[in-house]
C-alpha cells in the first residue's frame, strides 16, 4: 500500500470525495487483490513473498462456527517490528478479507468479525520489517455466511 498517499487522501477525504468520489477511493483500495477469487493471486498482488511459518502469530477463532456470517477472530503478533496484518480466508469467493497497517504506537493485535462461506483455513500474514510470516487456523462452518 502507498502509505503516504493513503494518509494524504484520508486527510483530504472530504475534498477528494466532493471532487471525484469513486476514483479517489479506487486509487487507495487494493482492488485487484480484494477482487481476485484465488488466495495465491491475492498474496502475489499484495507482494507477499517467502512467507515463513510462525507460532509467534496467535489466532483466536472458534473451532466450529454456527453461522459463517459472523465469525469473531482475534489476532496478535508477537513478532518484533510488525507493520501489517493481512487476513485471508482460503475458501471464500474473494479470499482477501482485510489488511491492517499499524503505527509504532499501536499494539499489533486486533479483534474483528469476518464472513466465512464454508469450512476453511483462516490465513494470517504478518509483515515485520521486510519479512513475511504466516499462520493458519481451521474453522468448521456449519452454516454459510456469504449469500
Amino acid at each position: 500500500m502507498q502509505r503516504r498517499n493513503f494518509l494524504k487522501l484520508i486527510l483530504g477525504a472530504t475534498t477528494a470525495l466532493l471532487l471525484e468520489p469513486l476514483n479517489a477511493l479506487a486509487a487507495l483500495w487494493s482492488k485487484p487483490a480484494f477482487e481476485t477469487t484465488k488466495i495465491k493471486e491475492a498474496t502475489q498482488l499484495l507482494e507477499i513473498h517467502d512467507e515463513i511459518s510462525s507460532t509467534d502469530i496467535q489466532i483466536i477463532a472458534p473451532d466450529r462456527a454456527e453461522n459463517g456470517a459472523v465469525v469473531q477472530v482475534e489476532i496478535k503478533s508477537n513478532l518484533a517490528n510488525t507493520e501489517a496484518i493481512y487476513i485471508l480466508v482460503e475458501k471464500n469467493p474473494t479470499p482477501l478479507i482485510a489488511h491492517f497497517v499499524f503505527s509504532a504506537d499501536t499494539e499489533p493485535s486486533l479483534v474483528t468479525r469476518i464472513k466465512m462461506a464454508e469450512t476453511s483455513d483462516i490465513k494470517v500474514v504478518v509483515k515485520a520489517g521486510t519479512q513475511f510470516f504466516t499462520r493458519s487456523k481451521n474453522v468448521i462452518v456449519l452454516e454459510n455466511g456469504c449469500g
Partner: peptide, 17 residues
C-alpha cells in the same frame, strides 16, 4: 495509528478492537 483496507468479507455492522 491504524489504517485498514477491507473487502466484502468483514461481517455486517463491522466490529474492531
Amino acid at each position: 495509528v491504524l489504517e485498514a483496507q477491507w473487502g466484502t468479507g468483514i461481517a455486517k455492522n463491522p466490529y474492531l478492537t
